[in-house]
């Protein structure tokens, strides 16, 4: 539950989902010129993943005894 209070986790999850949606749409849509969606999807996914990683990193730091 504490993880959900971490804003980086919330932002990371949001952008990871949006990024994956754009990637899926970019690869499987019948519309032409989907490179923008593929590029943006990749960047959003990486950004989301990094934010998630940072939120886990923080948790690990907090659990390390002094």
């Amino acid at each position: 539950m504490n993880k959900l209070f971490d804003l980086r986790f919330v932002i990371g999850t949001f952008f990871l989902i949006v990024g994956l949606l754009l990637l899926l749409y970019g690869f499987f849509s019948s519309e032409s010129d989907q490179s923008v969606n593929r590029w943006c999807g990749s960047i959003f996914s990486i950004f989301g993943f990094v934010m998630l990683l940072l939120s886990y990193q923080k948790k690990a730091d907090e659990s390390t005894p002094d």
């Binding site: 754009l22 749409y25 970019g26 849509s29 923008v36 969606n37 999807g41």
Partner: peptide, 9 residues
């Protein structure tokens, strides 16, 4: 300039 998908963003 935006196609569907990124247009939603």
């Amino acid at each position: 300039l935006y196609p569907s998908g990124i247009l939603g963003v």
